[in-house]
Nucleic acid binder design. Sequence first.
DNA 1: TCGGTGAGCTAAATCGATCTAGTAGATCGA
DNA 2: TCGATCTACTAGATCGATTTAGCTCACCGA
Lengths: 306, 306
Amino acid sequence: MRDPQRVTLNDVAAASGVSRATASFVLRDSPNQSISAATRERVRQAARDLGYVPHAIARALREGSSRIVVLSLDVALDGNYARSYVRGLDAELDAHDHALLVRYEHAGTEATLDAIAPRAVLRFGEPYLTGHELDDSGGWRDGLAAHVSAQIGYLAGRGHTRIAYALPDRETPLRAVRLRFADLAAERLGLSPVTPFSIPVSRTGAADSLAEFRAAHPAVTAVAAFDDDVALRVLAAMRDLGLAAPGDLAVIGFDDNGYGALATPALTTVHIDAEAHGRQAARAILGLDAADLPAAPGRVVGRESA
Amino acid sequence: MRDPQRVTLNDVAAASGVSRATASFVLRDSPNQSISAATRERVRQAARDLGYVPHAIARALREGSSRIVVLSLDVALDGNYARSYVRGLDAELDAHDHALLVRYEHAGTEATLDAIAPRAVLRFGEPYLTGHELDDSGGWRDGLAAHVSAQIGYLAGRGHTRIAYALPDRETPLRAVRLRFADLAAERLGLSPVTPFSIPVSRTGAADSLAEFRAAHPAVTAVAAFDDDVALRVLAAMRDLGLAAPGDLAVIGFDDNGYGALATPALTTVHIDAEAHGRQAARAILGLDAADLPAAPGRVVGRESA
DNA sequence: TCGGTGAGCTAAATCGATCTAGTAGATCGA
DNA sequence: TCGATCTACTAGATCGATTTAGCTCACCGA
């Protein structure tokens, strides 16, 4: 079932009366080759006329890896961060003649990756979402630290001094990191550390947890959430308990996921434009300089809940 | 930068004292080859010992296409349908030694696809979500028709006879199809056709549209929505207008997206298990029989809004 | 004892692009 | 006039797996 009309480099070489090697040199623009302008033009013209498209599989076999970058995801592509990150990554790779493919992680990942010999495999969000273990000072301009800081700062600016940090009840490596940055931000603002608080997925469970938490920590007046998902669960629990935001408890989410605007009260959240992060990741993978890229700004979208 | 420790077929052949051809025959289990049991065992043992993994790029070059199937998406992978579809597709391809990669559509798609010579390119949801233009009868067991029918049927079962169909205001090829199936379902149930109704993204716009719609169609007592997203917009608009669901207007969504449960009132919706659809798509692509696969059932998740 | 057959294997072509190690011929300085 | 150097190109190896076309025996029947 081979494609019978595929135009190969051999065809181009034959059509322009040169060897395959010369044709390749011209089309690849290889350095250290002296080829006359006339010949170059003939080869290029032939390639254009025949509609030559290099066969990427063959090239990959020769080069040892394909021009594909795989993004490995273990979660849904939810939230504005993820969406803008992928947009930037895709655009930048495109600009450098590479392609992005997304892989949903599960068993068998190894074999899959082997199958396309990607130039690189990227785990979603690295190094933004992880890798903060050692570096406390960095990342305050546009990293996770800055974004968490904006979240806490918004609540502080509204006069809140006792703040809870609402977390999903499943384990994630991010929990500890986010909590630490929240504490650091609180410290910088002269507040006491945030009080962590897990909220379950089930709606009744969420209400029970919140009631219990409120009883144990009556001084808390505001909740910063791990993400909008968690924040929406907090809002739902509050409604079920007859509490109003922001009056009884102010709530701020993280990473504008599109559903917060539909809640009542509408969810205040942190919106992160991660397109630059995506571009940075692309440059890093390709070994290019990324110094000229802008930062990924986070801004608070003030709605009703805080 | 070639991987220096890659184990090739040559290594396996050398280690087991046979030619490359023989090794390939054994490992591929090629028919029409007579190879002694002893030799087969030696080759297999060597492959195991060395940890041989066939180089998929080389194989793809030889075979003309790789064992990769690309799923082309133009939307976010939202909702339960999409997630379960991908799960099934992935699992089934895995079972047949193929791999799934997801491609987010945009300019430059052609070049990307060329780069991995995929065995097939699949557009999301086909033939479930499209291709209904000509075929009215199909899909009443587990297709889109059946699922829309379940949605309308649920409202009918609750005594509603004048039903609106809420649609997103952006154009999508699905609008017309869904609307037709809703009308067919209404007709089967002896109801008058559904009244279409577009709801904008902006929250104030949504409230205005709904108020206007209610004024124009006072007899309507229930809304079936295009998806949960639209349904949540309807619920938000209702709250903004001081209306209660299901008292003033019953609302049912479509394709349980996870956020409906957090709304107040919690959103009643149609939950579709599309894993079988994903598996069917995989079989179709690989040219295998899919007769033994189960149907993709849809069921109504009754919560509070209808 | 010869032709035929089948078992058990192998050499080499193939897929398409890349790139090393050349060759042929022109030009130049001494 | 000889070697050196440069320009302009090419033959062929290479990446790794698959597969066609054979090759060498052993054995069988006549």
